[in-house]
Amino acid sequence: MKKVFTKTPVLKPVPFHYCPGCGHSIAHRLVAEVIDEMGMRGKAIGIPPAGCAVLAYNYFDIDMGEAPHGRGTAVATGIKRVLPDRLVFSYQGDGDVAAIGTAETFHSANRGECITCIFINNGVYGMTGGQMAPTTMVGQPTTTSPGGRDPKFHGHTLKFTEILAQLPGTAYAVRTAVHKPAAIRKAKAAIRKAFEVQMAGLGFSVVEILSPCPTNWKMTPVQAIKWIDKQVTKEFPIGVFKDLSAEKSHAD
């Protein structure tokens, strides 16, 4: 019988602790599959975040080093500067990348650090119980914006990948999602592209992944997927905001 699917060896044989319907499990698998398919298991070094994915090192069978909340790309910078031929990536949430770690992410991108930021955007702080994130949408209720996010009061929804795309050091900036099979396949291709851009030394790469958090959205997994399809992707359009590798190949 032909084997059509198997678990990637870059993930340890350990069950995920994530909630039913959470996007982290899918995102983990995609990153691990790409590392495996690129033959980079022995050269990859990952930086897990603070938050729900803090235990990512229990799942990925690669070297992983913990960073303080928000500092993933700074720690990744330190690693990459010592070991420039390794595949170095941070895996961070929206609060991590775009609130407490805004400066570190922004300047890592602007320096053109050859690292990749896997940026999970679920619009809330998951681990701490669903508080407002920089990416929380206008009108969206959270435990710290119970009446819904009001820009006049809570500030505006931050689209950080678009901002990073404007920086000269950013080589690849893309927004993807993991709410349906076609999107998942595109997300995987984007992760692969980001890693290739990094290893080609073109600069900073960021892959934003719109990811469901049914628990904190107070939805069923199916409702959460529909919410991404109908609402989140309207506010956060899926697409490539920058791709220096494409420009380079056109120039060639």
Partner: peptide
């Protein structure tokens, strides 16, 4: 934090 990364990498 960069120092943390560099130390993790053995520098």
């Amino acid at each position: 934090n960069m120092v943390i990364g560099a130390s993790m990498a053995g520098g």
